[in-house]
Simulated assay, not measured.
Amino acid sequence: MAFQIPWDALLGGMLLGVSGLVLLALNGRIAGISGIVGGLLRPKESDVSWRLLFIGGMVAAGILASISGISYPDFAAANADSSPFFIVAAGLLVGIGTKLANGCTSGHGICGMGRLSKRSMAATLTFMTAAFITVFIRLHL
């Protein structure tokens, strides 16, 4: 089987990078999802509209992709046998990790790496290493 370039992933990654750059250049804000959502939990009056628009755009893009007939893997079906306790525990662990790392994968991995932030480089190296180890254990042990 010959290698094929995943054009949709390449385009999606480029759009993420451009959107992060535009948000930083025009608003001075980092496009980290945990920070954007966290800012809605403790809102400042002048800070709510752009956060709602950002999250609304993500939701709208997902809805548009699903109704346009674009076929993506059904990730929800892959975990259909997981218990609600396991799903809640996993979500809480992600939240704790995000809090400990002062940001999420989008904030550190996309925006922070692009700004050459040392803290983001360390965080990205840490979560990517953890992901590689987890996948190896899950698939090979």
Rank of each mutant, 00 (worst) to 15 (best):
F85P: 00
L141Q: 11
D81C: 00
F132D: 02
V22N: 08
F85A: 10
M113F: 11
V59Y: 02
A122N: 10
A90W: 02
M1C: 07
A65S: 14
A76E: 08
L11S: 09
A80R: 13
F75P: 01
I30N: 13
K44H: 11
V22H: 05
S83P: 00
G17W: 00
S120K: 03
T134A: 15
I33V: 11
S66N: 14
G17H: 04
S68Q: 09
D74V: 02
A60P: 00
H108Q: 09
S117R: 06
L23D: 02
V48S: 03
M14L: 15
A65N: 12
V59K: 08
G28P: 09
S49I: 09
P84E: 05
R42Q: 10
G20D: 03
I33L: 10
P6M: 06
M121E: 10
L24N: 13
V18W: 11
I87Q: 12
A65E: 11
A76C: 02
F127C: 06
S71A: 12
L53A: 15
I55A: 07
G35V: 04
G57C: 07
I133W: 02
G109I: 02
L24P: 00
S82C: 14
W7P: 01
A90M: 11
I87C: 08
M14N: 08
N27K: 15
V48L: 09
G112H: 00
L141T: 06
L40T: 01
G39T: 03
G107R: 07
G103I: 01
A89Q: 02
T98H: 03
F132I: 09
L10R: 01
R138N: 15
V88K: 08
I87W: 08
P43E: 06
S68W: 06
A90D: 03
M14K: 12
F85M: 09
F75L: 13
G62R: 03
T129V: 11
T129F: 10
S68L: 10
A77V: 06
A65Q: 12
A60E: 00
F86W: 12
F127W: 08
L93M: 14
V22W: 08
L21G: 10
L15D: 07
R119F: 04
P84L: 10
I96F: 14
L100H: 00
A89K: 06
A65M: 14
D81A: 13
L26A: 13
L40F: 05
M113E: 00
L26K: 15
G20M: 04
L53W: 14
P73E: 05
M1P: 08
N27L: 13
G35Q: 06
P6Y: 07
L125T: 12
M1H: 09
R42E: 07
N27V: 08
G57R: 04
L16S: 05
R119C: 01
I55L: 15
S19C: 09
W50D: 03
Y72Q: 10
G12K: 07
S71R: 13
M14G: 15
V18K: 07
A2K: 09
A60G: 01
I67G: 04
I5P: 00
G38D: 05
F3Y: 13
M1G: 13
R119K: 12
P43R: 09
N79C: 13
A9R: 12
L64K: 00
M58S: 08
G38E: 07
A90P: 03
A123L: 05
S19A: 15
